[in-house]
């Protein structure tokens, strides 16, 4: 059931509707904004350091050659329909998942 008093009330409100011009208010707000502190969160520091160490270890143990060999073998097995090296496939999948998941979570947290 429609409430006639609500319609009446809305009409009364619209009669005294308040529209306030800016008149420099927003400029004043911007002038008084506090400075943002550039603080790296502990979590970001750990991720950054871990990534650097991982990259260094990868280079030091000459991990590039086995990685490239594994990739070539994988593609060869796929082309020639041979049974692939499942261990390498699983490691590759996990690596891709983690590589994509962490940035996605961080970015999602920042934007939303």
């Amino acid at each position: 059931m429609k409430d006639n008093f609500e319609d009446f009330l809305k009409k009364e409100i619209s009669k005294s509707n308040i529209q306030i011009p800016d008149n420099g208010f927003s400029d004043q707000v911007i002038t008084n904004l506090p400075r943002r502190k550039m603080v790296l969160a502990g979590r970001e520091i750990i991720i950054t350091i871990s990534s650097i160490i991982s990259a260094l270890v990868f280079v030091l143990i000459k991990g590039f050659n086995p990685f490239l060999t594994g990739l070539i073998n994988l593609f060869n097995s796929l082309i020639h329909l041979k049974i692939p090296n499942y261990e390498f496939v699983i490691v590759l999948l996990v690596f891709c998942l983690i590589s994509l998941l962490i940035p996605y979570v961080e970015l999602r947290k920042r934007i939303f």
Partner: peptide, 18 residues
Amino acid sequence: FKTLVERYQSDIRGLLLR
């Protein structure tokens, strides 16, 4: 941020005025 302020300043100041 200034655009956001300009967009909502009338509503907020109107509310506080009431």
